[in-house]
Design a protein around this nucleic acid. Structure first.
Lengths: 95, 95
DNA sequence: CATCTATTTTGCCATATCGCCAAATAGATG
DNA sequence: CATCTATTTGGCGATATGGCAAAATAGATG
């Protein structure tokens, strides 16, 4: 790595930034188990559904989740479950 | 995990949020090699030194870096190098 | 096509973040 | 103590974020 620039990290930063919100972490961890429709996530999160929808958009734009329609329901799923392995290291930071 | 709440993820989110900026990722990756003084990080980053100092404060408050004084210089170091292993998974998200 | 349901989009406001500059601070040194 | 050097802190404007409520949309269904 000769001269790494800020620009080189902006792509990574975008993904990490998308993860850096309690609600979005809650959603990601919930999706680890199985894909879930928005209304179920709304119940889990407890915020207005438009707020949940916006959080899902952030995660989708970051490439962290993907969607599948089934009738009226949109089912979101994790694209890369490995992103949650990270939590184990964070526990160490927290101590 | 019976009923995980937003609150349970706020501590993790704080740390992740601190990592979610290109400059701060650049700094963390630089510190992976060795501890470094602020003026050297300023040259690496290229922003005003007060800006770099504020980024370091964010990382310090998150528990990601620690400081050691040596004469006039403050040397910053990574507390938990494992946080950067994460990058490998992010590459997968990016494709 | 009219309508129903799940979800997204838009608008708005309050608050947080980023970057620069100027001023303050903490140790080292004359 | 005066001063120098490295760094932090405060202040400011521009921009981004998070949340709600209302309006718009997309597909299913009568």
């Amino acid at each position: 790595m000769p001269t790494a620039k800020k620009k080189d990290y902006s792509a990574q930063a975008r993904i990490i930034k998308a993860m850096g919100h309690p609600t979005r972490l809650l959603i990601l961890n919930s999706l680890k188990k199985r894909e879930t429709c928005v209304c179920e996530l709304r119940d889990l999160v407890g915020d207005d559904i438009s707020t949940v929808s916006k959080h899902l958009l952030v995660l989708k734009k970051a490439g962290l989740v993907a969607v599948r329609r089934e009738g009226n329901w949109l089912h979101y799923r994790l694209t890369c479950p490995c992103v949650l392995d990270f939590a184990r290291c964070l526990e160490r930071v927290l101590t």
